[in-house]
């Protein structure tokens, strides 16, 4: 259900409309209000739900919600224990936050593509893009934060000297190959946040695009296509959240270990 401005442009207009963010400001200092607002609401939802359970947490027989939350907690804890062998008060909560928040972002993908744009147009908002993971800003914000943590822990655990030595003399332990090592390490470190962000973004953007394409089909074909795609997407959204979490844990545990 495209707005009238795009209705004239046909299918392309419809697709472009659905993938245009609600943006205010100019140049770099512009804000995607839809991304900011929706991800904040989803974050608040996550915090509210888990906080409610955490407050009433008991070591006796757990209730239904507590059992559910504990299942997630134990799942995350197990992932952290499997790949991270140090002691850190940050990594497990970080992994939990990433998993839940990314999952909720991705979950927005399962709402009908026209639902929010229709509601938005009724409220006078012309553009709205509801899945935060289809916004590079959101995925990069997370992956860059993780990157900062990687650098921070490298410096904290190994110290400036050891970390510097590792950057210069790893993987080839030779003074003559220092420039080559620097180049390799630069690429290696930079690839981490970029691959993290682009993997999540790419998967969800493509998924959303296919939902939009399905929405362009005649109404009697739509359920036949969108239902299997949505079912498949239940796997995708969980898997992407899981991958983001696991890779974060792996990168941080690498930062904790000496070569």
């Amino acid at each position: 259900m495209a707005t009238e401005a795009h209705a004239a442009e046909g299918a392309t207009g419809y697709i472009v409309h659905h993938l245009t963010p609600f943006s205010v400001g100019e140049g770099f200092w512009s804000f995607h209000l839809d991304t900011l607002f929706i991800s904040a609401v989803l974050g608040a939802l996550f915090i509210w739900f888990f906080k409610t359970v955490a407050e009433k947490a008991t070591s006796d027989v757990p209730g239904l919600t507590q059992a559910f939350v504990e299942m997630i907690i134990e799942f995350v804890d197990q992932q952290v224990k499997d790949s991270f062998h140090g002691k850190s008060a940050l990594i497990s909560p970080l992994a939990l936050t990433i998993f839940c928040w990314v999952f909720l972002w991705n979950f927005m993908d399962l709402f009908p593509v026209d639902l929010f744009s229709t509601v938005g147009s009724l409220m006078g908002i012309e553009y709205i893009r509801v899945v935060p993971s289809t916004d590079l800003n959101a995925t990069f914000a997370m992956s860059i934060s993780v990157f900062f943590l990687i650098i921070f822990y490298n410096l904290k655990i190994k110290g400036v000297f050891h970390f510097g030595k590792e950057l210069l003399l790893h993987p080839f332990d030779s003074v003559f190959l220092i420039p080559f090592n620097i180049l390799l390490n630069f690429v290696e470190y930079l690839a981490k946040p970029i691959s993290l962000a682009l993997r999540l973004f790419g998967n969800l953007y493509a998924g959303e695009l296919i939902f939009i394409l399905i929405a362009l089909m005649p109404w009697y074909i739509q359920p036949l296509l969108s239902f299997p795609w949505a079912v498949f997407h239940i796997l995708i959204i969980t898997l992407q959240a899981f991958i983001f979490m696991v890779l974060t844990i792996v990168y941080l545990s690498m930062a904790h270990e000496e070569h």
Partner: peptide, 30 residues
């Protein structure tokens, strides 16, 4: 654009909150 910075702030707040108020009581109960 600057959305990135906003998202980073939100993310930091969420992680901080989880670390301080959500993870410890639940893991203690477990």
């Amino acid at each position: 654009n600057a959305t990135l910075i906003g998202q980073m702030i939100t993310f930091t707040l969420l992680v901080w909150f989880t670390m301080k108020y959500i993870w410890p009581p639940l893991i203690t109960a477990l």
